[in-house]
Amino acid sequence: MRSFAAAEDLSAVVREALGEDCRIVGADRLRGGSKKGVYRVRLAGAGTASVIVYSWAQEENFWPGTSDDDGADPFAPASGLVPFLSAQRELSEIGACVPRVLWADGSGRRHGADVAVVEDIPGGTLEALFETDPARAATALDHLAGTVRLMHRHQAPRYGRVDLLERGGVSLGDSCEQVVLDRALRDLDEAAGRDARIESVRTRLDDRLRELRALVAPRGEFGLIHGELGPDHVLVNAEGQAVLIDIEGLMFFDIEWEHVFLSLRFGERYPALARPGLDRRRLDLYTTAMRLSLVAGPLRLLDGDFPDREFMRGIAEHNLQETLALLP
């Protein structure tokens, strides 16, 4: 049975961040996190109604076998204070909106885990606003489109996670397309081992992935991408601006990877975020690879005790059907 942060733990963290005079009125663990705990802490006497506390305790991580992430694999589940702060700095420097960091501790000594206190953006997610306030959502989507263009124009000569490159590290592999292929083949193995329908077309999918990879030409410049930029990872602030969250996986990579994810998650609203001139061959390879990832990843997560199991099964099933539909 997992145990999450208790009220007294959160109180101690918030008082270190904001001072002993603030009073904790209540705290809620927010749904959806699979790599870190996200808590909204309501306050009195602090000059702000609430803050968000991130906890990267091992108990908060539902992904099996991901405790030793060194960042060399761009697609390893990114988690921890170091990648979060690196991403927060990079995005802030180029003018993208992210929650302000009010306090952080990466020593692990005082609280048993990396923790950060950040500003609370109370406007809700863009995903929720699409349903509850379409006009406000449309304004935020326009702002998000500008942010995406800003990020993708910000380029580097090497690919990899921002925190890795910041400390002079080198990513695995010799190209984005090869990293994607290698990961897709691993995902294919995992998915085939968990679902007979993928196993029955395993050879065809393997051949298709290698065929698509062979068509992709080398590239030497890479844009800044979020990696999982769905409308659930965008908050909307009081000014109607899009604020990016869950940013630990921020990296320089082929922007086609991001656009494939954007098209999957935003659906009919994707044209507002689209960009002309993308590499069609990369898009074909990355679409097949991402669909497989969205089968294998959720099934892997379900090996553990992730609580929202029907939701995760639904993601796996939808993307399994889409993967099969991509076969010629």
Rank of each mutant, 00 (worst) to 15 (best):
S55L: 09
L129K: 06
D303R: 14
A242W: 13
G227S: 06
T147M: 14
L144R: 01
V117H: 05
D308Q: 13
V13W: 11
D105T: 09
R149H: 13
R149N: 12
P74H: 12
R153C: 12
R110A: 14
L326Q: 11
I94G: 07
H233R: 04
S50V: 10
R210G: 07
V216T: 03
I315G: 06
P157S: 15
T125E: 07
I121R: 03
G26H: 09
P328D: 13
V25T: 05
S3F: 11
A214T: 00
Q88W: 09
A145E: 08
F266S: 11
Q321F: 04
G249D: 08
L185Y: 03
A57Y: 00
V201F: 03
L327D: 08
E256W: 11
G227N: 08
R186D: 15
A138D: 15
L141Q: 10
V117A: 03
G227K: 12
E228G: 07
R15T: 05
S92C: 10
L264H: 12
G33I: 12
L150Q: 12
Y54N: 14
P231C: 08
R313S: 14
A191I: 11
V162S: 01
A27Y: 00
A135T: 10
E131S: 11
L262T: 09
G304A: 12
R23W: 04
S86E: 01
A116L: 05
E90Q: 13
Q178V: 10
R158E: 15
D195H: 12
R161Y: 01
H318R: 15
R23G: 04
A46H: 08
G95P: 03
R15W: 01
R161V: 02
D114L: 05
T147Y: 11
L91I: 06
H154P: 03
I94T: 10
A316Y: 03
G304E: 13
R281N: 13
L235K: 02
G47S: 11
R291T: 05
A145H: 08
A128Y: 02
G124E: 11
A76Q: 07
V117N: 01
D73L: 06
Y54I: 05
D303L: 14
A6V: 11
F266W: 13
V25W: 02
D9I: 02
A242K: 10
G19M: 07
S200N: 07
A137I: 10
T48R: 15
D174C: 06
D105L: 09
N319L: 01
F253V: 05
P298I: 02
P134V: 13
P64F: 15
R158D: 13
A191M: 09
A46I: 08
D303A: 10
